[in-house]
Nucleic acid binder design. Structure first.
Length: 400
DNA sequence: GATGGCCTAATTAGGACTTCCGGTGT
DNA sequence: CACACCGGAAGTCCTAATTAGGCCAT
């Protein structure tokens, strides 16, 4: 039986190739952040005032950058398409390897937590869904299936209006459904609006700006190299019957979500990179390239920048964001923070308490514990990026 | 030997696509 | 002509639930 700490650090070694970190090899040793999951949907676009506040409180991460960020973002969009790791856009690895090990640590239902190349993009809790069209009960639309002998049914795709039957570890599977995938893309500034964009966020209408690219991303995620828009489109059309999507009449490549989560990050044209109209060249190029998982840090970086500093002016955001979550973060030397983190792990027995953690190898000031409690804790991110310091962390935490 | 509890592997049912296709519309 | 779009049909993949069988204790 693996210990929790083993799992955590196995996870780290699986995903971090230190030789590939390059200039970012001084990333903090351990980043353990915990966010109240109702706010995860807005995680990717934390409010500026929050970020400024954090800057005052905590040491700024080393990989903060200015102009670099723009380039990284542009490159990241391509890299995103070239990634070999199919689960980069989902928490598959988290839920398979990490979450189950926290059996008695996480006590709050984690319905669906997903991660993009730039970190957590969205967590979809069914209670957060609101229906745009309540006329058609999904259950009615779904009843076309064959009726066999009664049996406990497995968890179905958590469609917006359906009560999730998953347990706290996403028992319904680690799969990221296509509609979830699309929503993630729509919340990912590396992809939206370049490849997919909202045309009317209020009504859930979006357009596949580059259908080939989106299909390819989906194929990448599903490990289906032959995926194309025609195939993905068939899956999308099945969503009509199930009441998840509608087709917007008369507009090509335009679809509509019948329901949307309340806390959705809406990236509009002004936010991202210039959209491309069915320009697939970069994708083909990239796929033939020797792509590897080391591409991920660039996108991570952009997220970190967003969190720790106000977004660059030229990316003037037009997010329609819910109020910024009460998120507190603390940075401190590894050893002291490790002890706190250890305590934190125990505190997770109390679902009403949450902290946001950041353990930085070179952090100077031991910060005060985060103010809590924040309701409904949910692990949102755990990254280990320096083996030696991580080892320190383990020893200090007493779990190694 | 019979019974019951526990564990594990194999089987089965069913959801979510995926693939293929023929057809229509723009 | 290319592409988007439609929906039927059959297939694949994956997962949860169920079942069967082995082992052990009583």
């Amino acid at each position: 039986m693996l210990q929790q700490s083993e799992l955590i650090f196995d996870f780290a070694s699986d995903h971090v190739n230190m030789s590939q970190l390059g200039p970012y090899s001084d990333y903090p040793a351990v980043i353990v952040e915990q966010l109240p999951h109702p706010h995860l949907l807005s995680y990717g676009g934390l409010a500026c005032e929050q970020s400024q506040h954090h800057q005052q409180l905590f040491k700024v991460e080393q990989y903060e950058s200015g102009e670099e960020e723009t380039m990284e973002t542009l490159v990241a969009a391509d890299l995103l398409l070239n990634m070999d790791c199919p689960d980069t856009l989902s928490l598959e690895h988290y839920s398979q390897t990490f979450l189950p090990s926290l059996g008695d640590v996480i006590t709050t239902p984690v319905t669906q937590v997903t991660v993009s190349a730039e970190g957590i993009v969205g967590a979809i809790d069914q209670q957060q869904w609101h229906s745009l069209h309540t006329k058609k009960p999904v259950s009615q639309l779904q009843s076309k299936k064959r009726a066999r002998k009664s049996r406990h049914r497995r968890a179905e795709s958590p469609t917006p209006d359906i009560v999730v039957k998953k347990d706290k570890y996403n028992k319904g599977g680690n799969t990221l459904y296509l509609w979830q995938f699309l929503m993630e893309l729509l919340q990912d500034r590396q992809v939206c609006p370049r490849y997919i964009k909202w045309t009317n966020p209020q009504t859930g209408i979006f357009k596949l700006v580059n259908s080939k690219a989106v299909a390819r991303l989906w194929g990448k995620h599903k490990n289906k190299p032959d995926m194309n828009y025609e195939t993905m489109g068939r899956a999308l059309r099945y969503y009509y019957q199930r009441g998840i999507l509608n087709k917007v009449e008369g507009q090509r490549l335009v679809y509509q979500f019948t329901s949307l989560p309340n806390h959705m990050i809406y990236i509009t044209d002004g936010d991202g990179i210039k959209e491309e109209e069915e320009d697939d060249e970069d994708i083909d190029e990239g796929v033939s390239d020797d792509s590897d998982d080391s591409t991920v840090p660039s996108s991570d970086q952009s997220v970190e920048d967003e969190e720790d500093s106000p977004p660059p002016q030229k990316k003037t955001s037009s997010y329609v964001r819910p109020p910024a979550p009460q998120r507190t973060r603390l940075a401190s030397p590894v050893l002291s923070t490790a002890r706190r983190c250890h305590a934190f792990c125990h505190q997770q027995h109390d679902p009403g308490t949450a902290f946001a953690y950041r353990v930085s190898r070179d952090a100077a000031d031991p910060a005060e514990p985060a103010e809590g409690p924040v309701p409904a804790p949910c692990w949102s991110r755990l990254r280990l990026q320096n083996r030696s310091a991580a080892g320190q962390f383990v020893r200090a935490a007493g779990c190694g």
